[in-house]
Structures are given as C-alpha cells and as structure tokens.
Design a protein around this nucleic acid. Structure first.
Length: 449
RNA sequence: CGGAGUAUAGCGCAGCCUGGUAGCGCACCUGCUUCGGGAGCAGGGGGUCGAGUGUUCGAAUCACUCUACUCCGACCA
C-alpha cells in the first residue's frame, strides 16, 4: 500500500478523553474513531489489525474441529423467553421493536439462538460431538463504557458452542477449546493465563477466564509465575486425542482472579518466589454449563439405547475488539505501538527519504514491488514529507520493520533496516534488502507454531 | 446508578471572572526554498462558540433548562 493513497489519519495531539495507553495510541495511530459512548468506527489501519486477529482466531478454532457459521445480530425476544433470560438479562440488553411491534433485541450473546439451530437439525448422538462458532458483533449496554474498544458497548466476539452427549464428553470439548485458546493467544504474541473464574449469570461449574497481565488491567489477579513460561501445545497436536494431560498441566498451577482468589490457598499453593500478584485484562472466557439451555429449550438427541438425552453444552468467547487494545497494552513504548508481526497492520514499511527525487522514487518503487511479490504485507511511505515525519509515523503505527532508503544510501548502494522492537539498525546492500526482510518476517508470522 | 467535570475550526487549547468585530498552535490549501528523526518563509481557507429559553441596545461571556461526552466509584456472560 502506498501511504500517499492510503487513509491514515494520524494525530499529533492526544485526544483528551483517552486515559489508557492503548486507547491513546489507537486514536493517534488513526485506528479508530469514537462515534458515541462505547461505539467505534474501525478505520483502515485498525480494521486491518482486527481482521488479522480474527483470522488467527478462526484458524485455531477450525484446527480444533469447531465449525464456523454466522448468526444475525438481531434476535427474537421469544427465543430468550424460552431460556428465561429475556427478563433476567436486565438493562444491559438493548431491546428493539420492529414496525409490527414485535419484540427483538440486539444480541449480547448467542446461546439461545445456537441452541435453536442445534435442536432443529441434530437428532442423533451419532452427530456428536459438535462445536459451532461464529464471529459476530454483539451489543451490551454497559453502564460505563471506557478504555476505547477495550470496554465498548458494541464489540466483536467469537463465540463457540459445544454440544455433547455426556458431561464427560463435554469436558473433552472444553479441553479442546482450552488448547485452541492457548494457541490463539500465543500466535498473537500474548501470554494469556487461564484462571479459575466465576461462572456468573451464564451458570455452570467449569469456567476459565483468560488473562493477559498488564498494569492497566481491570482486575487484580494472582498466579504462579511458572505459568508464564509454559510451552504452548504445537500445531500438530491431535485434537481428537487425549488433551487432559495438557489441561491438567496448565490448571495444576494456581491462578485466580480477585473474585475467586483465596489468599490463604494462594499462599499455600505457591511458593513465595513464584507468586505473582498483578493486574490483568480479560481477553476470553470459557464455560461448561451443562444443560442450562438445552433443558428449557429441549435440545435433545436420541441416544444409542433409543432414549432421548439432553445435551451438555459449553460456550467459549474471545473478543477481537478487546484483543487489539490488549495487544497494544502488552507491546508499546514511548514512540508508539510495537506490533508483533503476526497481527501487524503491515509487516514492513519502506521509507523513501526523498520522495519526488527521480532516482529515489525509482529505487524505492523497485524495492516495493519486489517485496510485494515476495509476499510481504508492505506499506510504502512515498509521501512528500520530511524524513522525521516519516520515522515518527512509522514508529507510532508500530510496523515491525522499517526499510529506509534515501539519496545517501542510493549513492553508496546501501539501505538500512530498523527493527521497531529493539531499535537495532542494520545497513546492507540494496540488492540484499528484500531477502533480508523476508528472512526476518517469515519466522515471526507464527503460522506454524 | 451515586460523585466530579468538560463542551469554542479536524486535534490540542486560550478568550468567559469584568458582555462590545472569535483567537493561538498543529493539521489543511497556494507558492518558493528545503529534505537522514514531526522543516522554513510568505500568502490563504475553514466556526450557527453543544442545544434551547431568558436578561440586555448588544451574549462565546450572565441566568435557567436540556443534551452529549469524560473521569472516580458501584456494576461488568
């Protein structure tokens, strides 16, 4: 993408409403625009990151055996009356009436709707296990939206729903999602720790919140430091095999949020030198809730013995629109965002230090085309601007690698590569630049971890 | 929902107390010169001062009402 033809409204001044660093940086980097309290437009740069995050989530869901579909944002009130949640949900649910005065709502979650789909089509135990998911906008009318898209009213969420014949099978489904989540966060460069969680209004008795440690986190968390270095299950892990050892390994070490923590238990379970008490951002939540919805909504299958069996369900949520700021909270410095390659809006930026100079333009255009051809997601800063402005923009929007070329380098036949994360700079022959950029980026795409 | 604030150009702000032609920086447009860490000079465009009502000869400024937004707290599958 040529920056001169892109839409990137970066801000020099920080809008005063933004308090936390990710919100400030998302506004300054031209990623989002607030349209009303808790409602945001995703501008091109932000949208690009959001879609990369979504893609990783989808890839890992698919790998684990979950199947993607898409349900509407607007749901019928009748469906929610069946589960009893229409009245129970309260003011957080945005209720809507259509022209025929029928009652609808903007979905805050989709347990009812997916259960309806399931009960319509799935009749035999032979069709289980089944895990259906979608990535769709949700609306929860939060009393106090804040922190930009971290806690917005409209937000994007991947929600998966598992259906199994028995609790034992449902726990296996839970373990598959558990492993998928470990891999999902890891591919985004995040260290997310599963913590025992309260099941809340959704109900059930097995639940984990996924927490990224960050100073600006909304809740206090307590865990064992050894969780931070645990290896992530590999790409070729067998999702049809026994995942209990992985689950047990991760859940054997203490980790709990402030709602669930018992300090005496924490201190007994974790040697002092391994204790971490910090703040964290919730970036996902998974539940097993048994027959809470399947029973009132009559989601049953016929079992091997011909008897009707109520299915056991779980739901598994992760929010791309919250993950983007969470990643920024984890990866930034004084100059701006420092994206991990796997979710960076562009993998590298080519900085033409003297746009308008015929030789510089020609050399940069050639590099740009070669990098595109090599499959690098490139931004080319061809604007007629001073070098300083270009460096500042590149740093702010956090592109992992800056390939810098100007008249001076052109004369000596050398280009420069700046590593955004470390600040390290390397000078190399222009002819080697493309191969070098490729060799830096490819191992960090994390498609293969 | 309790408490505290804010609202003036795209963004950041001054002006308000003490009523009298709406300003500054950045951004934007034109021209020239620049070009390795947010360039310089000159010229230029852009505003129902959040909305309404009132007081007044005259309201961004004073009074009242409303709305939006932010922060702290409570809340947060």
């Amino acid at each position: 993408m040529r920056l001169s033809r892109y839409f990137l409204p970066v801000l020099r001044d920080v809008p005063k409403e933004a308090e936390i660093v990710s919100h400030r940086l998302m506004l300054r980097a031209g990623m989002i625009r607030q349209q009303a309290s808790g409602l945001y437009s995703w501008l091109p740069l932000g949208y690009k990151v959001l879609m990369k995050v979504q893609k990783i989530i989808e890839e890992e869901q698919n790998r684990s055996g979950a199947i993607e579909l898409l349900m509407p944002t607007i749901q019928s009130a009748d469906l929610w009356r069946e589960s009893g949640r229409y009245d129970a949900y309260g003011k957080e649910m945005l209720r809507i009436e259509d022209r025929h005065e029928r009652e609808f709502l903007y979905g805050p979650t989709n347990e009812e709707m997916i259960t309806d789909i399931f009960r319509t089509y799935v009749k035999s135990y032979k069709d289980l296990p089944l895990n259906l998911y979608h990535v769709q906008w949700k609306f929860r009318d939060e009393v106090r939206p804040r922190f930009g898209t971290m806690r917005s009213r409209e937000f994007l969420m991947k929600d998966a729903y598992s259906f199994d014949l028995t609790k034992e099978d449902a726990v296996k489904a839970y373990e598959r999602m558990f492993v998928a989540y470990l891999r999902t966060y890891s591919r985004m460069g995040l260290t997310a720790i599963p913590m025992r969680a309260d099941t809340g209004p959704i109900g059930g008795d097995l639940s984990h919140e996924w927490i990224v440690l960050a100073e600006t986190g909304e809740s206090a968390v307590f865990c064992d430091r050894r969780l931070l270095d645990k290896p992530i299950p590999p790409q070729d892990i067998d999702f049809r095999g026994d995942l209990k050892p992985v689950f047990d390994d991760w859940t054997s070490l203490y980790a709990a949020t402030e709602d669930m923590v018992d300090m005496a238990e924490f201190e007994a379970a974790v040697p002092e030198e391994h204790r971490v008490s910090a703040r964290g951002i919730e970036v996902g939540h998974i539940f097993y809730f048994g027959t809470k919805y399947s029973e009132p909504m009559k989601a049953t299958v016929t079992g091997p013995d011909g008897k009707e069996i109520i299915v056991h369900m779980g739901s598994y949520g992760v929010g791309p629109t919250r993950l983007v700021p969470a990643i920024i909270e984890a990866f930034h410095d004084e100059a701006g965002i420092v994206w991990p390659v796997s979710v960076a809006p562009f993998e590298a930026v080519l900085i033409n230090l003297k746009a308008g100079d015929a030789e510089c333009d020609a050399a940069c255009t050639k590099l740009y085309e070669e990098l595109n051809a090599a499959g690098i997601d490139m931004l080319y800063d061809d604007r007629d601007q001073g070098a300083g402005a270009k460096f500042t923009t590149a740093d702010l929007i956090g592109i992992p690698y800056q390939l810098i070329l100007g008249p001076r380098g052109l004369k000596s036949g050398e280009a420069e590569i700046k590593h955004r994360k470390t600040g390290e700079r390397e000078t190399l022959p222009i002819a080697d630049a493309v191969a070098r950029i490729v060799s830096l980026i490819e191992p960090q795409r994390r498609n293969d971890i």
